[in-house]
Design a protein around this nucleic acid. Structure first.
Length: 395
DNA sequence: TCTGGGGTCCTAGGACCC
DNA sequence: TCTGGGGTCCTAGGACCC
């Protein structure tokens, strides 16, 4: 155990073109063809593209309309998240047969700490090979794996292994492995950070590692500057954490056409509120902060949030609060997107042990709080539930 | 080119308290 | 005399990831 702790005992497993590969698996005639999974509506974006589609310059996040122009003969498919969730659960099961220390970082990627798996399954490299064989044999999908002394370097390694590869970075080779790579290979360095670094003449991780902390601080602040330097040297002490509890539950929707009617907005807020509330209750949680997100027709995005005196898991309560936040925001524009996010999550109530009277009391406390904060403009329960179509906002 | 939806983490200012 | 410092909470916004 102690010896393997010093080895490259962290694996990062990353499925290749995950959504697209699942779609190809059930439509074998698509194998070898450009396949794009994503929103197929006018405002859709690409969620996943097969490597054949990537050859045309199609990448995830790109508007589907643009992808169609780049490759009109590609196969465009809407996402089927239930299938991807099932596939993700199957992947987790395979990974957990090697060690309980599995952290699913998203549907299609996971970190494993295999420092304790040595005696049973062999070295980290052998475990990685077995995982790749089993995922291919049992699921018919390819994945890439990075093995390294920590999560950060393992993820960089799996990125270089793509597609369908394995890269092992021994601890004593971390520095030379990272040095020639562009800074954007580091998870956490996105477009903005790369741009700032490039303006400073820093393109590779080796160059970044040679910079003094004081030279970075004015541009990134003390915290990010320290992180950048440590990361450029491959230093990362974060642990593999199986099943961390969620910190936020959210739902948002970009509408096919912008909303310009308060009644429509209110209806969509209610739908979103019911969606997040149901997921909250499924997790057995309750939320103390409600955040409304609004994006206008000009793509300006803002958020308004409110902390509650007592946590809630009730859809109508959340909808009422979100509606009041919308009114307070005084959006004088058409609405492209609405979102509701719940945070400061804690244990939920036990409905059987709590009478309706008590719930009502809590609800009214919330209304009291709203009145206190926003005065007469704040909504009442009755006003929300029975609101007439003629009722305007922001008064 | 006209820009999704689900998340995590960080910063920064003001309120409030000691 | 308008003068502090630190800690924590709340809110808004932004970078980043898949």
């Amino acid at each position: 155990m102690e010896a393997s702790r010093k080895g490259s005992h962290i694996l990062h497993v990353d499925m290749d073109a995950f959504f697209a590969s699942v779609e190809v698996r059930r439509r074998p005639w698509l194998r070898g063809k450009p396949v794009v999974v994503g929103g197929t509506g006018p405002r859709g974006v690409v969620a996943s593209a097969s490597y054949e589609a990537r050859a045309y310059g199609i990448v995830s996040g790109m508007p589907t309309a643009r992808a169609r122009r780049l490759c009109p003969w590609a196969y465009f498919l809407p996402p089927d998240f239930l299938s991807y969730q099932e596939e993700s659960a199957a992947l987790r099961e395979i990974l957990e047969s090697f060690t309980p220390l599995v952290e699913m970082a998203s549907l299609d990627e996971a970190y494993l700490d295999v420092s304790g798996a040595g005696s049973l399954f062999g070295s980290p490299e052998e475990v990685a090979r077995k995982i790749r064989e089993r995922v291919k044999g049992e699921r018919g999908l390819s994945c890439s794996v990075g093995a390294a002394p920590n999560k950060l370097v393992a993820k960089v390694a799996s990125g270089l292994a793509k597609p369908d590869g394995l890269v092992v970075v021994e601890p004593e080779r971390v520095t030379e492995f990272l040095a020639p790579l562009p800074v954007s290979r580091l998870p956490g360095v996105g477009a903005k950070t790369r741009e700032t670094l490039e303006a400073l003449g820093i393109r590779t991780l080796g160059e970044l590692a040679g910079v003094r902390l004081e030279a970075l601080e004015p541009f990134f602040g003390p915290s990010q500057a320290r992180w950048l330097l440590a990361a450029s040297r491959g230093e990362d002490a974060s642990a593999v954490l199986p099943n961390p509890p969620p910190k936020q539950i959210s739902a948002e929707e970009t509408f096919p056409r912008d909303l310009d009617d308060d009644q429509e907005v209110r209806r969509e807020i209610l739908r979103l509120a019911q969606r997040v509330a149901r997921r909250l209750r499924e997790e057995g949680l309750a939320a103390s902060t409600v955040t409304l997100k609004v994006r206008t027709d000009t793509f300006r995005t803002f958020t308004r949030s409110l902390s509650l005196p007592a946590p809630t898991d009730l859809g109508w309560e959340i909808a009422d609060l979100a509606s009041s936040l919308f009114r307070r925001s005084e959006v004088g524009a058409r609405v492209r997107l609405l979102g509701i996010s719940l945070s400061r999550l804690g244990p939920g109530s036990l409905p059987d042990l709590e009478g309706r009277r008590e719930k009502r009391r809590r609800a009214e406390q919330v209304m009291d709080e709203l009145q206190r904060r926003f005065g007469r403009g704040a909504p009442t329960i009755a006003s929300f539930l029975t609101a007439s179509p003629s009722e305007g906002r922001g008064r």
